[in-house]
């Protein structure tokens, strides 16, 4: 029988998740692109599932960067540091996708690709800078323990950007509209079944994509750590010196 632990370590799980995310996102795109055009925006609304999906994935990745970082500080197990680093890298990729898809939507809908002064846009750019900075700091520190500690602290502090970015459209008057679906407010302003299904299926697909990428990057980081450890051992034994 397949136990939980065995399932989690199964070598086929990671590629299976990757394949599943492709299938689920394809289903989402099918519903999105067969949906009726919006009464106001016409075909523009079809970017919504991608734009919101990418933004959601970035939020999720940055939130979990902090959680994994905190778990590392408590357990001192490098497993969590590797996951935290992987998560922040994924977050950076998808916050860029969010900014890019937002710009593509903004030009025809608002009349501008970008506008400084909008709190949602500005805090998103700020978050990108902070996380790129975090990855740079990681690259600069060679000592594994120190690197893990420092980036865990940065990851925890930087995660404050997630709620600020999400709530910015409520706190300040912005160009960016407020969320279309809100579980807290029990409100949905998405009166287009095709886009709604595409959006919800897309959220699931992007979440699976995150888990896939996290496992993939985490496994790669583990291989890297083992290789570094091995090289260090060889060096200590003086094997490399004889070459």
């Amino acid at each position: 029988m397949l136990t939980q632990k065995k399932l989690f370590d199964a070598p086929w799980l990671t590629p299976a998740l990757g394949l599943l995310s492709v299938v689920v996102i394809s289903v989402s795109l099918f519903f999105t692109f067969t949906a009726q055009p919006d009464v106001l925006q016409g075909y523009l609304t079809r970017i919504l599932p991608i734009h919101v999906g990418a933004s959601w994935l970035a939020y999720l990745a940055f939130g979990l960067t902090a959680v994994f970082g905190l778990t590392y500080l408590i357990t001192r197990n490098y497993h969590w540091d590797r996951l935290s680093a992987a998560s922040s890298e994924i977050g950076v990729v998808f916050i860029v996708l969010s900014l890019f898809s937002g710009a593509l939507w903004g030009r025809p809908a608002w009349g501008a690709y970008w506008s400084w002064g909008d709190a949602r846009l500005t805090t998103t750019a700020l978050m990108l800078m902070v996380y790129v900075g975090m990855l740079m700091v990681r690259g600069m520190i060679e000592d594994t323990g120190r690197r893990a500690r420092v980036s865990a602290v940065i990851g925890i502090v930087a995660s404050v950007g997630v709620p600020i970015n999400y709530l910015s459209v409520y706190w300040w008057s912005t160009l960016h509209q407020s969320p279309t679906l809100s579980i807290v407010e029990r409100r949905s302003a998405l009166q287009n079944s095709g886009i709604l299904i595409g959006f919800l299926v897309g959220l699931l697909g992007f979440t699976i994509l995150y888990v896939y990428l996290l496992r993939l990057r985490g496994q790669l980081a583990l291989q890297q750590a083992r290789l570094e450890e091995h090289e260090l051992e060889l060096e200590l034994k003086g094997v490399l010196a004889h070459d």
């Binding site: 949906a35 009726q36 055009p37 919006d38 009464v39 106001l40 925006q41 609304t45 919504l48 809908a109 608002w110 009349g111 501008a112 506008s115 160009l175 509209q177 407020s178 969320p179 279309t180 302003a189 998405l190 009166q191 287009n192 079944s193 095709g194 886009i195």
Partner: peptide, 12 residues
């Protein structure tokens, strides 16, 4: 001049 649209999306 920028257009600020709402969060409402409607199918006809």
């Amino acid at each position: 001049l920028l257009v600020r649209h709402s969060e409402e999306y409607k199918a006809p």
